[in-house]
Amino acid sequence: MNDLDTCLRCTSHLRDHELGRHLCCRCEAIVASALTEIPKLYSRLGDHLHRGASNGPAVSGSKAAPLPLRIEVLDLQMEKGPALAVLQGWVRDWEFYGHAELAETDTLQERVNGACRTLRYNLGWAVAHHPAVDEFAHEILSAHRTLNRVVNGETPPRKVAVTCLRCQQTLRITLDTRGETCPGCRTEYGHSEVLRLPLADRRAAA
């Protein structure tokens, strides 16, 4: 149970009916939506495997040289890539608590489907009881963004330059960062702390 009155992910204050949870209802809904969309995005990776490939039908008997593969997409399709490995890692973790069951005998797509299904089904338990549900949410949303960027061409989050309070080092952060460590003085900033840092001078940020 969360002894704090703030969401561990977005640090917003929990409402009365959310007290005791680790995540607020809004963050839970965002993670649930990502778990619903991940299988659909994963199934479309094959359409983006070749550089410059169109989604039109293949021409039989073509003598053209095969298009080069996109390694980052191939990596996403792999069992140990940043999609399935993350999903199955959390299924294994939740299995320890008795709230999931890992299936490793199906196709990769079926394993993605099954992992997302069981994680979404037990999300309510995790939000209330899992001690690392904020880390889980971060990794699931990161995997979703990566897949969405490949399939739908979504651009990465825009980085903002801010200044370390201790040594004036410029840090480049995104609005969804979980926290940052200053490379100059090694000061650690949490999510809410790093978002409150002053914007860097334009010349320093260049």
Score class of each variant (00 low, 15 high):
132 A>F: 08
137 A>G: 03
100 A>L: 07
152 N>C: 07
128 A>N: 10
94 W>M: 09
106 D>Y: 13
133 V>D: 01
133 V>H: 01
120 R>F: 04
101 E>T: 13
142 S>W: 11
141 L>E: 10
103 A>P: 00
97 Y>F: 15
149 R>S: 15
140 I>W: 02
157 P>H: 01
94 W>N: 00
144 H>D: 04
138 H>C: 10
145 R>D: 09
105 T>P: 06
111 R>S: 01
95 E>G: 10
163 T>F: 05
117 R>S: 12
101 E>W: 11
126 A>D: 01
153 G>T: 05
125 W>Y: 11
96 F>W: 11
163 T>C: 13
152 N>T: 07
134 D>S: 14
166 R>L: 01
118 T>G: 02
137 A>P: 05
166 R>A: 11
152 N>Q: 04
141 L>T: 10
122 N>V: 00
158 R>H: 04
157 P>W: 06
136 F>R: 00
148 N>H: 11
152 N>R: 04
116 C>W: 03
142 S>K: 12
137 A>I: 11
105 T>R: 14
142 S>Q: 11
158 R>E: 13
154 E>N: 09
124 G>N: 14
144 H>Y: 12
147 L>Y: 05
151 V>A: 04
127 V>H: 06
130 H>R: 02
115 A>Q: 01
145 R>H: 11
135 E>P: 00
103 A>S: 11
163 T>A: 14
104 E>N: 14
148 N>C: 08
93 D>S: 14
105 T>H: 15
125 W>I: 02
152 N>W: 04
125 W>R: 05
96 F>A: 13
117 R>T: 08
164 C>S: 03
97 Y>C: 07
132 A>E: 11
137 A>Y: 07
107 T>M: 01
160 V>H: 11
102 L>M: 11
112 V>R: 05
150 V>K: 02
155 T>M: 02
113 N>M: 08
102 L>R: 14
142 S>G: 10
134 D>Y: 03
126 A>L: 12
117 R>Y: 00
114 G>W: 02
139 E>M: 13
142 S>Y: 07
127 V>E: 03
99 H>Q: 15
125 W>M: 06
151 V>M: 00
124 G>Y: 10
140 I>G: 04
102 L>A: 07
141 L>G: 00
105 T>C: 04
164 C>I: 09
103 A>I: 15
121 Y>H: 13
109 Q>P: 06
126 A>I: 01
106 D>G: 12
108 L>H: 10
105 T>D: 14
161 A>S: 15
